[in-house]
Every structure is written in structure tokens, then in C-alpha cells.
Design a protein around this nucleic acid. Structure first.
Lengths: 219, 219, 219, 219
DNA sequence: CGGTAAACGAGACGGTACGTCGTGTCTTGAC
DNA sequence: GTCAAGACACGACGTACCGTCTCGTTTACCG
């Protein structure tokens, strides 16, 4: 909730950013925004999502009620339901990406895909992902936000592994990097977006990686 | 707009089904529903979608206005906006699946993926797909409809090709069929859902199929 | 609720105005507005007013709830709470002005003032008058409306009586008509606006008229 | 802003009363309230009123902004907008009542009515009166305040003159005092509340008094 | 050919949520 | 303890759609 947030949120007075020393543009005046309120709102969103329901059944009014908060307090921080959803997603999805580069390229790939699989197994996260993803597909501007905050880091990690694999001669160098990434990530997305969330067995990452590495043609 | 429709639409009086002769359950009385009105509504949906916009900016009231039609006329035919969207999608997506089974398994796979690629290059279809997909992810009941009408046929065609490949010894038989399908279809979905619609070059299907067939491991 | 209303209300399609024959400017299309709903809203206003309360405690939302009506239905007919109050007042204040010109000028004056006194005695009307009057004093545009619909007719009736009195030699002709009217009407207003509504005994009109006629100077 | 104020205001610490020496109940600690702030708030109210506008368009938030003052500073001094209005009215309406009892009863009456007329010709005061009056009519508790501070003194002065007139034999003694007062004050109220503020010519007080004294019946 | 009945355009209807604004209280740091 | 600033819970505002309903009109069929 550090970097990407500022472009979506209203970034009201920047009262909690400066590390030390003199504040450049004057310190924020008036009562500071309550951290607890922030948490309550995000927690309220997650609580409502657990009940399940449509995107349009997740109303701002309902969130305010669930969080014990005024509507204005929500609109003071987020321009709308969509941006709020992104931040709610961020509160769940803040585990660090797995370490890569230490072992074999294959193991790194498995680890990355396993990391994504975890998202879908958690009830909370999968519900949230379901809604966020559909919301995102409607709002092109949010799509950018979503991509920058959630997709891009994963893709970058994947890219680095793939580059290492090419450099070390483990991977073919005649396939463009973008497609290479899609080959590994696509099957997970397939289950995530269109299939049931249940169809994510533990050994799925391994099977995906091995199949993509070796090809499906009979030798 | 034939088979699947009946489960979604109200199928009010069955006025356009029987050719002649005795109607079993009473012939429809009163003024028959106008075919032109039906077209106008669906066309109105597509016209509004071209303007682009959020899912919630596509209102039933707006559709009625755009089509020069009363709201009740829409509700008489579809139970809601979602089902209407599915039918609108069907008016575009009614090309027959490509023939398969005549040539090599590889060519069949390329043809199938190329068929999907076509969906994404048309402005109208890609916009519609964007909204329908996000709508579908929220409504579990629609999800079933969408799957049965649009996903299942494609998956089935794909499955048949893959089975043929396994039987003929061209494809490995130690990968379960479901994953096999995802390997080919996943990369396309990746571009469709998360990437830009533009990134769908003509030779993409070939490159996907060859990469998946041969694997990405350096020989 | 005939003439004056049209300038305040939205006068949507004029569906209830034409006496007979062909409608000049096209008959209203769509479902006609319900007379019953209209009554329910006005009745709701009066019911809430009986409970007593501030002007700002009489909310549009409350009126809608009390009348079992959607807010939009109110806004469809009246531009705001103020105009609605005027019409609510009109539903109470629709007794015909008393007949004048038949007997003595003094009796006519007493009758007119007695007519005004009746307004203040009724709980409903006095509450309503209290709010309407204060509302009216804030909104200059409503002030005009209020004057035209409620004040002007009374003043005109009073003026006619006074003119008759001057012509017949019963009243002095060296006092301008406006002031003459204020002399008779002022004392009633005094009790109405500033005093308690209770202080309106039955013989008040007679005493006012006689005092104004004869003067208060000791002979 | 002397006597009546204390019942309405919070009378916080009494910081401006003691001349010197020992404070009986502990001297006020902390920063004393700024006199300038008080003035700024009242002046802000008057400035906003000159712009004209509805009662509800005169918001506490707007007053604070206009006075360059925090909202809490206003609420620390007055319990609400209404009481503040009364005090704002008092800053304008602080001329001493005219002397009476020195000359003829008629001249005293003219003087008193002329005094009231002055209120109406000042733009500031008439605007303020307009709002205060309407506010007052809604809040029964304020009505009492308003009556005690502004109406009662005038009525009392009027009453004294009338009593003197009766005692001296100049006025009839068969009309109750309350009605007698209304006869003189009513016409002014008429113009003030319902008519235009403009209709207050200089000789109006004289004409009212003479007409009421002598009666309007032709001799 | 005239009657019956449903479809049609229009738009009113009871609701629900929207995003904004004002209220009166509170919480900061500065004075 | 006051002050300016502004966050806070609350609740009304006026608007926009929802899905249903009631109008008068139109358009088929059926007797």
C-alpha cells in the first residue's frame, strides 16, 4: 500500500510519508486521518465479500454500514468503489514474491506458479479476485492500475527467470519472451478466470511447467 | 440464437417455431412479437457498446432509448440485462467452428486458435466480450449459460482434436486432457483478458501451437 | 388547485386540464399520473405536520416514506419541498371566500376577518401556515406564488368592501386604500405570526372592526 | 449583547466582566477568547446575508469560512445557527428605544412606530429580520428568546404610552390593552412581513397613528 | 368484417444506491 | 484553554436505473 496507492487514492495531505526532517510543502493541518478507520473500511469490504455476491451487491453504502463509517469518509480516501477494491486486494495480496535464482530454472518456475495458485485457494482472495478482475475489465484506467500493482511484478519475476534460463541455455532462444511467459502463466489464468476455483490441485504447477518445458508431442 | 436461447429467454409463446399444422399447447393469440424489434434491441446494444464504456453505463433504459423501444418490450424477452448481453454476443459469434479432422493435428489446433483470435480483432466483438466476461464472472448462473453456449463447444472441438492426436500417437498420453487443452488455450486467454487486444498478430496461433508441441526446453 | 398551481408544478402533460373535445397539443403519452398518489403525498405532508416540528424536520424523504411513495414521484410533480408546501396549504385552504356586498360594510368586514380567524383555529392549518409562512419569507420566488394564490384574493375581497364603504360614504376617503386594508388585516396578522395561535377569541373580529371604524380616541 | 445573551450563549468563562482584583471562582485559565474572533463571526454573518439567500444557504460552515474561523469556535460560543442569528440581529438592533412620556401621546406613538420603520429601511437589518423571523417561527424555544429580547421591550414601551393615554383620558378605556397595541403595531408588521420592504414611506407612522386614533368612519 | 387479445411506445410507480453537502463533535499541533 | 484546520458519524439532498405497472394504439388471428 505504498507506491501504487498514491496514484489511485486522493493522497490527501501526505501526512504519513516523510521519513524525517523538514516537510517540504507544509505539514498537514487539521485532524489527521485515522488509520483505524482505514483498516475498518478495508476489513468491511472483505467481510462483505465473504458473504459472496454480485459486484453490484457490494455497495458503498453497505461498506460504510459494515465498517461503522460515514459514506463521506470512504469518498474522502477513494474516488470510488473500484479503487477501494484494488486497495482491499492489496491488503490480502502482500506476501513477498518467492525467491528465485537460487536453484534450477524449473524449480523457480514451479515456485512462481505455486505462488499464484495460493491466491486462488484462499476463499477471501479468490472472491476478491473474481470481483476485482471483472471490475477491472470494465474500467480501462483501473486496468492500468491493476496491471502495474499486481500483474507487472509477477510478470517481471517470471521474465527474469526466463531470461536466466535462456542465458544458461536451458530454454530455447527462438521464442519471444512475451509468448514464453504466456505459455507458463496462461494455464493458471484459465482455471482462475473461467473454471472453478477448486480445480487447483497441489501438483498442478509442476505438471504445467514440465509439460511446457518438454512439449506435448510424443517422442 | 437457437438452442441455448430457450433456457435464458422467456420463450413466450413460441410464435416462431412451428411450421404449420396443429399446435399442441394452443397457438399463440394476439399480436405476434415483432422480429424487427428484436433486431433493433440487439443492434442497439452493439451500437452502445461501440461507444465504449463501463458495464454499469450500459443501462436497460439506455438500450430501450437507443432502440426506440419501450422498456417492457425488453423485459418481455429477456429476464435482465445479463441474458440480453449473452444473446447480443450470440448475434456476433455465430460463425461455425472450423472443420477439423481432415488434416494434421497441428493444423487443426492452429485453425481452432485462429478462430478464437478472430474474436479479439473485431472491435465490436472484443468490446462485447470484455463486458460479457466481466458480467459473467459475477453471476454464477450466467456463468453456466455462458459456458454452455460459448465455451463448451470450443473446448469440445479442441478436445476432439487432442483425443485424435493421442490416438494417432502424435501427442503424449501422460498428460490429462484438461491440462492439455489449457496449454493451448491459455496463452490466447492471457492476451484476451489481461493484455491489450491489439497484441494478436496473425502468426500467433502457429507460434503457440509449435511452442506447446515441441516444448521450450533447449534441445 | 387549478390556476395558480400550473406555474409552480411541473405541469407535465396537462392531461387533466382540457374540458372536452380535441386536445390541442397532442394527448399525453405513457401511463398517466395517479391522482391517488397525489392525494397520498399531500395527506402525508399534513400528517407529518400534525406531529409538529421544525421546517427542516419535514424532509422529502420523510414525506415519501409517510406517503408510501418513491422520492422521484414527488420530484416529478413539484420542484421542491417549498412548492409542495404551497399545494398542501391549498388542499386545506380551499373554502370559498365569504359573500360580501349584501349587508352593511361593517358586517362584511367582520365576516372577512372571521374567515381569516378560522385558519388559525384549526390545528392543521395553523401548523401548516406557520411553516409555509416562514418558508415563504426565505424564498422570494415562492413569496410571489404565495401572495398570488392566498393573499391577493383576500386582499381583493377586502378592497372591494372598502371601496363600497367609501362610495357609500360610510368610510373616510382621505386614507389610501392600502393603509385602510392594513388597519383591518394587521391586528389579525399580529396574532397569527408573533403571538400564540390561541389568542383568537370568537369576538375578536367584531372588536377589531369596531375599534378601527370608530377610532380609539376618547370622545 | 448584554442581558439576554447570557441565556443563549454559553457564557464560557466570563473573561470580560471583572475589572480587576480577585476573581471569586478562579480566574479563567488558558488562552482567553479573542474579542476579534467574536466580531469576525458576527460580521461574517451579516456579510453573507447581504448577498441575500435562503435560510438554509446560510450555513455554519459558510460562516466559519467567511469569518476565517474554525467551526468549533462558533459552536464554543453559540449552541447553533439560530442563536447566532439572534446575536447578529442584536448587533444591528441596539439603538435605544426612543424617549416617551415627554410630550403628547400621539407624538410618542408616532415616535415608536417610526423607530420600527427604521429597521425595515436598512438593507442589512431587513434581510436579517426576514431570516430571523422565519427561523423563529419554526423553533418554539427561539421564539421565546426572540420575544423576550426584541419584541417585549417594544411592546412594553408601547404599552406604557397607551396606559398613559388611557389614564389621561386621551384614549378609550373600553378596549383591552393587547388589542390596542395590535391596532398600532399591526399595519407596520403587515408591510414588514408580507409586503415589499420598500413600501415604508416617511410619513407612514403619522398616517397610521392618526387613522387609528380617529377611526376610519366618515363623520 | 368486426371482435378479441397480445405486443408495442411511453412513461409513472415504489425502490435502492449514488455522490455531495451540512451538522455538530472530535482530534491534531501551534499559540 | 483557545484557535484554524479538517476528519468523523450521521443523515438528507436531488438524480439515475431498476423491474413492474398502466395507459392508448397497433396488428395480427379468428369467428
Amino acid at each position: 500500500m505504498k507506491g501504487g496507492t498514491v496514484t489511485v487514492r486522493d493522497t490527501p495531505t501526505g501526512w504519513n510519508s516523510e521519513p524525517a526532517g523538514a516537510e517540504p510543502r507544509g505539514r498537514p493541518r487539521g485532524r489527521p486521518r485515522s488509520e483505524a478507520v482505514e483498516q475498518a473500511i478495508l476489513e468491511g469490504v472483505l467481510r462483505l465479500l465473504e458473504g459472496g455476491g454480485t459486484l453490484s451487491s457490494l455497495t458503498v453504502e453497505g461498506i460504510a454500514k459494515a465498517a461503522g463509517v460515514g459514506k463521506a469518509t470512504i469518498y474522502r480516501r477513494w474516488p470510488g468503489k473500484e479503487a477501494l477494491l484494488l486497495d482491499a486486494l492489496a491488503t490480502l495480496d502482500n506476501d513477498p514474491l518467492p525467491e528465485t535464482g537460487s536453484g534450477s530454472v524449473r524449480d523457480d518456475l514451479v515456485r512462481l506458479i505455486e505462488f499464484v495458485r495460493q491466491r486462488g485457494v484462499s476463499k477471501r482472495e479468490s472472491e476478491l479476485l473474481r470481483l476485482v478482475t471483472s471490475e477491472v475489465m470494465c474500467h480501462p484506467d483501473l486496468s492500468q492500475q491493476y496491471h502495474d500493482r499486481f500483474i507487472a511484478p509477477r510478470r517481471e519475476a517470471l521474465r527474469q527467470v526466463l531470461v536466466r534460463g535462456i542465458d544458461s541455455g536451458e530454454l530455447r532462444d527462438d521464442i519471444d519472451l512475451e509468448l514464453l511467459g504466456d505459455l507458463f502463466a496462461g494455464p493458471m489464468l484459465m482455471r482462475t478466470v473461467l473454471h472453478q476455483w477448486a480445480a487447483l490441485p497441489e501438483d498442478l504447477p509442476e505438471r504445467i511447467v514440465d509439460a511446457v518445458l518438454d512439449g506435448v508431442r510424443k517422442k
